[in-house]
């Protein structure tokens, strides 16, 4: 962990100013940059599996199961979606995933901001030791804690409930430290003025600090959503009953049980990735900034 400011590193701006490799201008053989000849096929290669995912989700099973399979659907067949949304439990799993992720995002913002603010601005007994202890927990891999966490959840009677999924993700050290670093980068004078005027710490945090911290808050929100929504390991351990499945757990179980109904399986996959995909396309800049800023802080 560095102690420098955590203001999100200016993320990848391909059109950035600090452009490096332009030589003197050359004669043009093509009406466009020759780099397109390399980049276009390469980036299509990355997108191809996802295109195939969407295409096959609107095919019929007959189209998929013949050899060689159809490469383009004969029309938009919604049989897979109808099956998944009607007969299977996907709507329920979707709601479960949504509840777990929404609670995790909200609580990481609240508890991360409170904890981060206490560490950044308040002086209290044991703060230093506590901070070191929390930082150290970031080095403990999940595989080490998952067995006892399962036992704790079992004792609390939470196995097979969404509570078992929610409690471990209520607040992460990442959220606390991300926000602490950002708060430290803000000018202190503003807060102190309000504080002297008799504002409580909580009011200062809510009215002054948080409105200035949107980049850090969105980083915490984005990464919390991404990791909770996409997680499979912990739901696999904590949940046995299919009414409590998350989408990821539901999808892999569903695939195992409907091995030949590929259209339905692909429709289920589309539903599983769609929220993340839409969120990404809608807030691409925030996503990429979050990932680079958290990454580069390492």
């Amino acid at each position: 962990m560095t102690t420098t400011t955590a203001a999100p590193v200016e993320a990848a701006r391909p059109r950035g100013d600090a452009r490096s490799t332009s030589g003197p201008r050359r004669r043009r053989l093509l009406p466009f940059s020759p780099w397109h000849l390399l980049l276009a096929p390469l980036s299509l290669l990355f997108a191809l599996p996802l295109v195939w995912l969407v295409l096959s989700s609107v095919m019929t099973n007959a189209e998929i199961n013949r050899f060689p399979p159809a490469l383009w659907p004969s029309g938009i067949h919604l049989g897979g979606y109808r099956y998944v949304l009607g007969n299977a439990m996907f709507p329920r799993w979707f709601m479960n995933s949504l509840i777990v992720s929404a609670v995790a995002v909200a609580s990481n913002l609240v508890f991360g901001a409170l904890g981060g603010y206490a560490f950044a601005r308040m002086r209290f007994a044991g703060s230093r030791a506590l901070m070191v202890a929390m930082l150290a927990t970031m080095a403990i891999p999940f595989q080490l804690t998952m067995i006892p966490t399962f036992l704790i959840m079992k004792r609390l009677g939470l196995i097979d409930t969404l509570g078992a999924l929610i409690i471990p993700s209520l607040v992460t050290p990442f959220a606390v430290f991300m926000l602490r670093q950002f708060f430290l980068s803000l000018p202190r004078e503003l807060e102190e003025a309000a504080w002297i005027d008799g504002c409580s710490r909580l009011r200062v945090l809510i009215l002054i600090v948080l409105p200035l911290s949107r980049p850090a808050l969105s980083t915490v929100a984005v990464l919390t959503f991404l990791t909770t929504w996409n997680d499979l390991t912990w739901p696999l351990i904590a949940i046995n009953h299919d009414t409590q499945y998350t989408l990821q757990l539901g999808l892999t179980t569903f695939q195992g049980q409907h091995h030949t109904q590929w259209a339905a399986v692909m429709a289920g996959s589309v539903i599983t990735v769609l929220p993340v995909l839409l969120a990404f396309l809608g807030a691409q800049k925030a996503f990429i900034q979050s990932i680079t800023s958290s990454g580069l802080k390492g």
Partner: peptide, 27 residues
């Protein structure tokens, strides 16, 4: 580099990263 469509290329290359390992595996 400053060429057209570079943002689109970057998006296409990056998108698989946000797909869950579960969906990747199923796909």
């Amino acid at each position: 580099r400053r060429i057209r469509l570079v943002g689109l290329y970057r998006t296409l290359i990056f998108v698989p990263f946000i797909i869950s390992a579960t969906a990747q595996g199923v796909l």
